[in-house]
Amino acid sequence: MRKDKKQDLPSGGNYKLKASDRVFSVFNYLIFGIFTLICIYPFYYMIINTISSNELSAAGLVNFLPKGIHFENYKALMSLNGLGSAALVSIGKTVIGTVTTVLATAFLGYMFTQERMWKRKFWYRFVVVIMYFNAGLIPMFITMKTLGLTNTFWVYILPCIVQPFNIILVKTYIESLPKSLQEAAEIDGAGVFRRFWQIVLPVCTPILATVAIFAAVGQWNNYQDTLIYITDQKLYSLQYLLYTYINQASSLAAMVKNTGIQGLNAATLATQQTPTSIQMTVSVVVVLPILCIYPMFQRFFVKGIMIGSVKG
């Protein structure tokens, strides 16, 4: 924070405002303002359209403020097939995936700092090297099939537990801590697990928070696992379900267009769901958790990427 204050005066602070400077500043603010709007507006647009009258929304009249507010679209989601189970799957894999990843990352990062470990350097390389190669889609699919993991919940969790990049981050972080911290506990007779739980884990909170957020966002956003390994509808994730809804909506919209009815405004009531309204409502439901946690955790992202960038 203190560093930021210095950054307020990026160019030394004692310069005079020249005309070119002022023109530059105006453009600078303007361009950043516009780009930021472009980043926010789509989310705003979807949110106001899901709570507006579907008739007006379909006619394209809801662009800036919600009109004819109602929540029928959200109520309608309750009766939507598969949405409940998809939400459970998504929440389940996000929570379980994040907890296991964070604990494994912390534990492995910590264990790889224990110099007494048998062939430590070899095993560390064994883990880190997997960042740089990839067997490919079909071999992965065949492997999952061989292991009996296709169409199970665990296909979402098990392959993501060990994440080498995060392990490097945590290991570097632990190595930067004063050695005396662990030595003292060891002399007090604390075993390797107690040192992990009571000393290392608490001081690693900032870096683990970063790992947790990336793991959670990754789990929540991933749709490829479902696409490739899952055919059982009960195990669909929200993202994948949303993808199928959009595709249905697009084929429906295409059908409407082909039969020559212009838009959907002709026949729909204000609160009757259209494919578009359903698709947008599901989108809002899927994006809402990210929108809610994002501002709270933004500083962790920044911190995490800074630690990562120091590492190179």
Binding site: I40, M46, L242, K257, V286, I290, Y294, Q298
Partner: peptide, 23 residues
Amino acid sequence: TTLPNFISWVLVFSVAFALFSAN
């Protein structure tokens, strides 16, 4: 401006669809 990085491509497509489809 960092927010869009944290939504999935499915959602980006959903956004694209809401803004740029025929209707």
